[in-house]
């Protein structure tokens, strides 16, 4: 029951998501998977009980991804969560909690990552 995904590069993301929205898809969620040297971002969409998946590979070195919360407002919760857990920065987030959506200010690393990244260092990169 493995599923099929459509692999994307960063530039395609917004246009693909917009195309899906115009076809009437509902945003289900996004999943971030740590692959060791890169991240996989999986976007899940639903139409008439059938799922469609988009896959975006993000290198460990550059963790900036365009936000889709402008297209699907619902994405803002999960994008903030991913920002907390994996330290990926979303560009143009509708409501940005700056990596403190769940976590307190004193948390210094990203708890879901297999490698350790310093929070201050990543903030510098994101800016």
């Amino acid at each position: 029951m493995a599923f099929e995904t459509m692999n994307l590069v960063k530039g395609q993301l917004s246009s693909e998501v917009l195309a899906l929205k115009n076809k009437g898809y509902r945003f289900v969620t996004m999943t971030c998977v740590d692959l060791g040297d890169s991240f996989d971002l999986l976007y899940h969409f639903d139409l008439d009980l059938k799922l469609t998946h988009l896959r975006l590979n993000v290198a460990k070195a550059d963790r900036v991804v365009p936000s889709i919360s402008g297209i699907y407002f619902a994405a803002l919760v999960i994008e903030n969560e991913t920002q907390d857990h994996f330290g990926i920065t979303f560009d143009g987030l509708a409501l940005d909690f700056g990596g403190h959506f769940y976590l307190e200010e004193e948390v210094k690393k990203f708890p879901f990552c297999k490698f350790t990244v310093n929070k201050a260092e990543s903030a510098g990169e994101g800016a």
């Binding site: 289900v28 969620t29 999943t31 998977v33 999986l42 619902a74």
Partner: peptide
């Protein structure tokens, strides 16, 4: 509401990633 699980496994003793999308999470927006 709708609950979604994503599981990624590599044949290891432990699962690589378990992601849970709960219904209230979707109902916050």
């Amino acid at each position: 509401g709708e609950l979604m699980y994503y599981v990624r496994a590599t044949g290891d003793k432990y699962l690589d990633r378990v992601r849970i999308r709960t219904p209230t999470f979707a109902n916050v927006p």
